[in-house]
Amino acid sequence: MNELPPQIQNQLAQLQQVQQQAQALIQQKGQVEMLLRETERALEELKKSPEDADVYRAAGELLIKAKREDVLKDLEEKKDNFDVRLKSLSRQEERVQQRFNQLQDQLKQALGKMQGAGAGAGPRAE
């Protein structure tokens, strides 16, 4: 790393940063996907339950009785929110991936030029 020109070191650092951003986004996306699946399943199962079934909402360790319709509405809202967040994260992921590819190409070109210059300088040095 110390032997590399500062410009390439800088590009490499940027590439690593973008890679970390991409990993963080993938992790966030995974979590939102999981929450979305959980909400969809809860919604599906609640819709299958009889209309007069007692429904409870968790409040810490307590379960508090709630109206089935209210809980259905809350779950629909939750699902919509997760959908929006997931789309936004996918767009961000796409942008970061593009930036990563761009930086990777730039770095490859810079390294190629450096190697070419090194090979050209070899015989002259002798």
Binding site: L46, V55, Y56, A58, L63, V71
Partner: peptide, 21 residues
């Protein structure tokens, strides 16, 4: 039985339904 459905929601179901879930 009170069955946890996830997302902080619990619903009362007949024991047979709960078993199927």
């Amino acid at each position: 039985v009170l069955v946890g459905l996830g997302s902080g929601v619990t619903v009362e179901r007949k024991a047979a339904d709960a078993k199927a879930i």
